[in-house]
């Protein structure tokens, strides 16, 4: 199954508190009013939402991913640079006088241990223009690439290694 139900009460408590903090921040961002009445309403709805989430057993690794390392933010910065480079490359293909397409469906093996890590890896591949994750196999993704310039195995290995570093806090 996708969701792992078994987790101790401490982990669940940590996830509940993290969800509460995140929801309060979301309320304050969207509301922008700080009168006592609105703050009270916000707190009430946040607590009700957390109660509902706990009752629906949604406080797991997938909904509240506190198991990810904070270094994920650094990974996003690295990913943004990669996205920019790949975008320029795709623009060059589009604007070339005669487009030299050589479309490929290639196999990209993964080595992440968690579902969340694989999801981040697949979404990173899709976010980078020029490569798109099409389907998931038993131990690899099927990736569509625009030309053979985007299919360097080193690039995928580097990205996968960076995802493996941030996917779990304790190993």
């Amino acid at each position: 199954m996708l969701r792992c139900i078994q987790q101790d009460a401490g982990t669940e408590m940590v996830k509940a508190i993290s969800l509460t903090i995140a929801l309060i921040a979301l309320w304050l961002t969207l509301s922008g009013h700080f009168t006592p009445f609105l703050l009270a309403m916000g707190l009430a709805s946040v607590l009700f939402t957390v109660y509902l989430a706990a009752r629906m057993r949604l406080l797991d690794d997938e909904a509240v991913p506190v198991q990810l390392r904070p270094a994920l933010v650094l990974y996003w910065v690295w990913l943004a640079v990669e996205i920019f480079k790949a975008s320029v490359a795709v623009c060059r293909v589009i604007l070339a006088r005669e487009m030299k397409l050589s479309q490929q469906l290639i196999r990209v093996p993964w080595n992440q241990s968690t579902e969340m890590g694989r999801t981040i890896f697949a979404n990173s591949i899709t976010l980078t223009p020029g490569t798109i994750t099409v389907e998931t196999g038993k131990d690899a993704f099927l990736v569509h690439a625009l030309t053979e310039d985007f299919t360097g195995a080193d690039g995928f290995e580097e990205m996968g290694g960076k995802v493996t570093e941030v996917e779990v806090r304790h190993r």
Binding site: L101, S102, Q103, Q104, L105, I106, R107, V134, E135, T136, G137, K138, A140, F141, L142, H144, E148, T151
Partner: peptide, 22 residues
């Protein structure tokens, strides 16, 4: 992909190795 649409003029196709046992 599931509906059967495939790229025209594929240069390299590793669908079979990747999805053989799915």
């Amino acid at each position: 992909f599931v509906a059967g649409l495939r790229p025209q003029d594929l240069k390299k196709d590793e669908t079979e190795q990747t999805l053989s046992d799915v």
